[in-house]
Computed example of a mutant assay.
Amino acid sequence: MSDRLKALADAGVSIWLDDLSRERIETGNLADLVKEKSVVGVTTNPTIFQGAISNGERYDAQVRELVAAGKSVDEVIFALTTEDVRNACDILEPVAAATKYDGRVSIEVEPGLANDFEGTIASARALWAEVDRANALIKIPATVEGLPAITAAIAEGISVNVTLIFSLERYQAVMDAYLTGLEQAREAGLDLSTINSVASFFVSRVDSEVDKRLEKIGTDEALALRGKAAVANARVAYGAFEETFSTDRWQQLASAGANPQRALWASTGVKNPDYSDTMYVIDLVVPDTVNTMPEKTMMAVADHGEVKGDQVSGTSAEAQGVLDAVVAAGVDWAEVMTLLEDEGVSKFKDSWTDLVASVQAQMEKAAQ
Rank of each mutant, 00 (worst) to 15 (best):
D3E: 15
A9T: 09
A11C: 10
V13A: 07
V13W: 06
L17A: 12
T27K: 04
K35I: 00
T43K: 04
G51Y: 07
I53K: 02
S54I: 10
G56V: 04
R58H: 05
L66H: 10
E75A: 11
I77F: 05
R86D: 06
D90I: 04
I91A: 02
V95W: 02
A96W: 10
K100C: 00
G103A: 02
R104E: 00
G112M: 03
N115S: 08
E118K: 13
G119K: 07
T120R: 04
S123A: 15
V131N: 00
N135W: 01
T143Y: 12
E145T: 09
P148N: 08
P148F: 09
A149V: 11
A153D: 10
I154Y: 03
I154K: 00
S159L: 00
V160L: 11
L164Y: 02
I165Q: 06
M175N: 05
L179I: 12
L182K: 06
Q184S: 11
A188K: 13
T194R: 13
S200N: 09
F201C: 03
F202V: 12
D207W: 01
S208V: 14
R213G: 07
L214S: 04
K216S: 09
E221F: 01
A222S: 15
L223I: 12
R226S: 08
K228H: 06
A230Q: 06
N233I: 09
R235A: 03
Y238K: 05
G239K: 11
R249G: 03
Q251L: 13
Q252M: 05
A258E: 09
L264M: 03
S267L: 12
V270K: 00
N272R: 10
S276F: 02
S276N: 13
Y280K: 02
Y280P: 03
V281I: 14
K296W: 00
G305V: 09
D310K: 03
Q311L: 01
V312L: 12
S313T: 15
D324K: 08
A325R: 14
A328Q: 06
D332R: 10
T338S: 13
L340W: 01
S346M: 14
K347T: 14
A357P: 02
Q362P: 00
K365L: 09
A367S: 14
